[in-house]
Amino acid sequence: MSSKLRILVPVKRVIDYAVKPRVKSDRTGVETSGVKHSLNPFDELSIEEAVRLRERKQPVEDILAVSAGPAKCADTLRTAMAMGADRSIHVDVPEDKPLEPLGVAKLLKAIAEKEQSNLIILGKQAIDDDAGQTGQMLAGLLNWPQATQASKVSIDNDTVTVEREVDGGVETLRAKLPMIITTDLRLNEPRYASLPNIMKAKKKKLEKKTLGDYGVDATSRLKTIKVEEPPVRQGGGKVEDVDGMINRLKELGAI
């Protein structure tokens, strides 16, 4: 007997991938105000995969998108719903006290249990903190199987087969639902939300919640000491031809 899929897709609002981040002059962080934000690219892949499972006639009962952060995360959730998520939950977290991956994982555990999710698809990393931890932490907290950096997912009844990207190639894993999957770039190509779907998404349900509603203590464990610009690399100028390149590389001791 196959279970109905209740898919949970956590999404994060991050600075758009094409924007070059600027470090604040007081070295406390990266400038975020007045900067274009978007849905984390790896999370777009998660939504897309959930929607494709439904399109592949898997018994998808519910696709729930969740985001934790300031008020503007609602926009991110609308995007997720325009791409095909059925509904969403926005957990309000003040902008100046963002959750760490462990806090997010604890919150997601509480939500997954309340919503009876049996498949959670997360991005492999957020492109702002580059931690790459939340999915694995959540799998640990729930004691569910995990397949990170997925490039192919197939489901047959309750059995999930995942091809994942590893150093030097791919490996294939198999596990039973409930399960955690994190997405790699090769998994799929996310669709653009069409205008009619964007309009429809405005009517979909978006619940507002707080950390307190889930009884989650997400106290930060890490203290930011400072955030700095990386050392700037100076381009060494151009050479005229291939001989010039070989000579310069020799001077630099590179060949």
Partner: peptide, 12 residues
């Protein structure tokens, strides 16, 4: 590194 190496974070 954070933000694809565009910022360097020191944490305690």
């Amino acid at each position: 590194p954070i933000y694809a190496g565009n910022a360097i974070l020191t944490v305690q």
